[in-house]
């Protein structure tokens, strides 16, 4: 009953504040579109497994910007599916055969470029050394945006919900309505749950809009189930929502809330897979373990690029649910500052 009252109130507030509503619903789509237009990637140093490659080729390869490993074909396939390497190179009498992992277009491109260089050096005159290329995931049509798109979906779903929920809970505090609420019989957990459901409703709409827009309008690569995309986007938004309301307790005004963006959002964006983590120092990789966004974007990429099902994203989903619940409980606890019971 009281939760329902809170939820209805939040909905009414949103309906009367069209600009904020637009910010969580329209802004993510706009920015995703913008990113799809401008995206480009930098040079990347790939890791290639060599299987039965002539001496001459491996000597030439060592001069390129590439990390080389030697495997049997079956071992190489295993590490390729684990994404420890970017490609497997074999050499038959006809020419090079490349098996690409495929989910990162910039890696694909640099592998192909290197192999092309080698082939040209060995046989500069003719096109007889046509490489045969296969993909474990994705295809040659995949653009950089297809690969980073899932990450961006996660980032924007997270960012806008974090900001709106944080500021609106903060306002509850600065205008005295939080104190006023705690003079009513509402329980602290009811308040937190009410907020989660109220904002949750708009997060569902946001998640659905972002997913639809990315896949249908921006034509992003989509291998897996749309329901999984919705689930993960929603969970990310939920984590953002609880984190936003929690952190608002440590801000005294809207400006201080905005100051959390460089502290909380930006590091997560850098470490969530937008850039290749393997090239970063180890402590940074460890830091990403603590960040909710990394799990969400990892799951989104699994679903959209690799077409993974439940078993591959289950851990990410559990971790996200865990984050949300932990933050909610902390939130209920933090409200004790205002009323003991």
């Amino acid at each position: 009953m009281r939760i329902r009252a809170l939820v209805l109130r939040i909905i009414k507030q949103f309906m009367n504040d069209k600009r904020t509503l637009a910010m969580i619903l329209i802004a993510p789509m706009f920015i995703l579109w913008l990113m799809s237009q401008v995206f480009h990637t930098d040079q990347y140093e790939p890791t290639i497994a060599l299987v039965d490659v002539p001496e001459q080729v491996s000597i030439l390869l060592k001069e390129e910007d590439v990390e080389l490993l030697y495997y049997t074909y079956s071992d190489a396939e295993v590490v390729l599916s684990k994404r420890e390497i970017d490609a497997i190179l074999t050499w038959t009498s006809i020419g090079p055969e490349i098996m690409l992992e495929g989910s990162d277009p910039s890696a694909n491109k640099s592998v192909l470029m290197i192999v092309q260089n080698i082939a040209n050096e060995i046989s500069p005159t003719s096109n007889s050394l046509q490489a045969s290329i296969t993909y474990l995931h994705g295809s040659e049509d995949m653009t950089a945006f297809d690969s980073f798109g899932p990450v961006l979906i996660g980032v924007f779903a997270f960012f806008f919900v974090f900001l709106t929920s944080g500021i609106s809970f903060l306002r509850e505090r600065t205008t005295g309505t939080l104190e006023r609420l705690l003079a009513t019989p509402v329980k602290r957990w009811e308040l937190v749950i009410g907020y989660v459901i109220g904002f949750g409703i708009f997060s569902v709409i946001q998640a659905a809009l972002i997913a639809w827009f990315s896949i249908q309008v921006l034509d992003m690569l989509m291998m897996g189930s749309i329901w999984f995309v919705l689930l993960v986007t929603l969970l990310l938004a939920l984590t953002a929502l609880t984190l936003g309301t929690l952190l608002s307790a440590f801000a005294n005004n809207e400006f201080q809330m905005v100051q959390f963006i460089p502290l909380v959002i930006v590091p997560q964006v850098f470490l969530c897979g937008l850039f290749n983590l393997e090239s970063m120092s180890e402590w940074l990789q460890w830091l990403s373990v603590l960040m909710p966004l990394s799990y969400g974007t990892d799951a989104l990429r699994e679903i959209m690029v690799r077409g993974s099902g439940w078993s591959e994203i289950a851990i990410d989903v559990y971790v996200l649910v865990g984050f949300s619940i932990t933050i909610m409980i902390t939130n209920i606890f933090v409200l004790k500052k205002y009323r003991k019971i």
């Binding site: 009252a5 009367n16 205008t175 104190e179 009513t184």
Partner: peptide, 25 residues
């Protein structure tokens, strides 16, 4: 009744009353 008016400015007077009335059951 608090010293500073703790009201939801985005809502109408009716919605404010309605909200608090519901909190009291």
């Amino acid at each position: 009744m608090a010293q500073s008016d703790a009201l939801y400015n985005e809502l109408s007077a009716y919605d404010n009353l309605d909200f608090f009335a519901q909190l009291y059951g």
